[in-house]
Amino acid sequence: MPSPNILLSTPNPHKLPSTVAREDEHLLVAAAKKGDTAAFEELVSRYERKIFRLTMNITGNREDAEDAMQDAFLKSYAHLKNFQGDSRFYTWLVRIAANEALMRLRKRRPNQVSLDEPIKGEEEDLMPREIQDWGPGPDQRFAQTEMREILSSVIEQIEPEYRMVFVLRDIEELSTEDTASALGLSVPAVKSRLLRARLKLRQKLDRYFKQGGAN
């Protein structure tokens, strides 16, 4: 087993002393399981942007998102021996990061975040009102930076119970079953909340995307 200290002192984390090929995730995971921290750091480098986006989307708070990301990577390393490889490493990592982010969100809003209780108003009328045409390519009317700000703003406006499901299912593309398992919800509850999350976000984007909207 390589000495962790030697590998950790590698000047550029993108340059692996390891012979593991970059595209072979399972080899990196196998090497990391054996204590090759450089292999693990390569996994971190691959997924840090996506994991930070995930923790930012869930917590809506930069400090919490940073802490959740760091703890997610640390926990994934500590529990790597339990990773059986029956799902992608990234899917497993997303579940850990989502839990870390959710814990911080609950600390910040202790009475507002409960995933396992029925949500008041879930039987409400779902049909949107005042539906207006967005015209062709509504997203093309915005610069990339502006679009990021809009998306970040609208996702923060919907309740965490819906946001979590949308983030895992639609942005991270976990299956309905994996999303349910990660959040401790039933599959019907995930489906129900995903539908509402999608409709709520559509409604929030309407003010930007409708023709002659807030641009």
Binding site: I131, D133, W134, P138, D139, D170, R202, L205
Partner: peptide, 14 residues
């Protein structure tokens, strides 16, 4: 429109 706009909503996030 609602279906198309919901698809667009998912797409812009993805």
């Amino acid at each position: 429109l609602v279906v198309d706009q919901t698809k667009m909503t998912i797409k812009v996030f993805c």
